[in-house]
Nucleic acid binder design. Sequence first.
DNA 1: GTCAGAACGTGCAGTGACTGCAAAAATATT
DNA 2: AATATTTTTGCAGTCACTGCACGTTCTGAC
Lengths: 218, 218
Amino acid sequence: MLGAMGEANPRGLRDEKKRVTRHNLRLAALRLVDERGLEGTTTEEIAQAAGVSPRTFFNYFPTKESALVGVDAELAEAMLAAIRERPAGEPPLTVMREVYLQFAEVTAADRDLWTLRIQVARANPSLLSQVFGNSTKWDRRVAEAIAQRTGRDHHTDPYPALVASVANAARRSAVHRWAISDSEAPLSEAIAAAFDLLAAGLPEPPDSPGTATERAGA
Amino acid sequence: MLGAMGEANPRGLRDEKKRVTRHNLRLAALRLVDERGLEGTTTEEIAQAAGVSPRTFFNYFPTKESALVGVDAELAEAMLAAIRERPAGEPPLTVMREVYLQFAEVTAADRDLWTLRIQVARANPSLLSQVFGNSTKWDRRVAEAIAQRTGRDHHTDPYPALVASVANAARRSAVHRWAISDSEAPLSEAIAAAFDLLAAGLPEPPDSPGTATERAGA
DNA sequence: GTCAGAACGTGCAGTGACTGCAAAAATATT
DNA sequence: AATATTTTTGCAGTCACTGCACGTTCTGAC
């Protein structure tokens, strides 16, 4: 029944089954919503497609949407650790740039799942809001990490929160662009371009540098 | 019954009543949620506190949350118009800075409402996510306005979306800081400081300039 | 291998957000 | 005043989501 199961078995059969069930629910949710839309899919159908009872769905995900666009807690912690481990004295904006560039490849790794996610998210805009809405907590945690790095007090000093929210906005913008783009340009390129503009004070660039379109003249 | 009604009566009694009802629902929702929390307050209670039927609540707001943190459509349109009406050739970041400064005083006008909103949003983090999620649409509209101004195509050019999301993030950060601050410093000051840093490429400032704390030494 | 204990899955009943529909009430128009 | 239009309201219904109790499945010790 659990045929194509990975060889890794970290903490017994029980955890492995949970992992499989979680994955089945995610996949079933994405596929069904991709076909029938968000409103046209009930949690009951998702549960049935994944081979579990309706009640069990909510043992794995708090909301229907979280099965579709839920974030990976481990990844978030890894990013925060990366922020803290950057060389002392490095400018905060550079820190964010480098960390996001570093993790861009991780994000691009399982592009299949991401592609399906993006596809579903594009068809159901409320999901995109959901994704970005969750970023408030993220902004805050990043602000704390930056404050810690720079020896500032994020309760009284507006700078860490500003850098965090602006850097995250820049990254979101780049990821969004990359996700809806047809071109095969790597995510890291879009992120680098965004942070370059940020560091320069957002001057108006000559032309769209992130797309495949090249200027005919110059 | 409609005692303290403003003197403006743009389109008859009907519209005025709707305005009052909408405001009553907003206020009732904020107060009740402030007391009992988001989960501890039902739409039925909100409707009752505002003096309308439960069904009517949903004639005014699509969700319970939107009554708490929903954006004012008129204000949004006014801001977008202001963006378009800035002098041609003005750098986009400057445009955003000036428009947000211009509207800072409007925002600060009903500080009571905003303070209550922030308070409620802080106590119920899921609302913050909601706010952030809704700002996706706003980011997009600003991006379109900037693209229009600069003669760029916001479908292929990442620049307008970047400026929009980053500028909006900076404003949100400033408003948030201002809202939770005890000091009487004007909102416009916080916004101006944030945009100054943005235009300079987010260099690390000497010390917290937005707070009342002054350095003892230098 | 067996047995206790914990963790997990499942059914049941319930709350509450939200919707469509049609009748009643309020308001605008002539 | 009579009529047309808009708004409010009640009603019935769907569905996301929750607590609880019970059965099932795994784990660890003997």
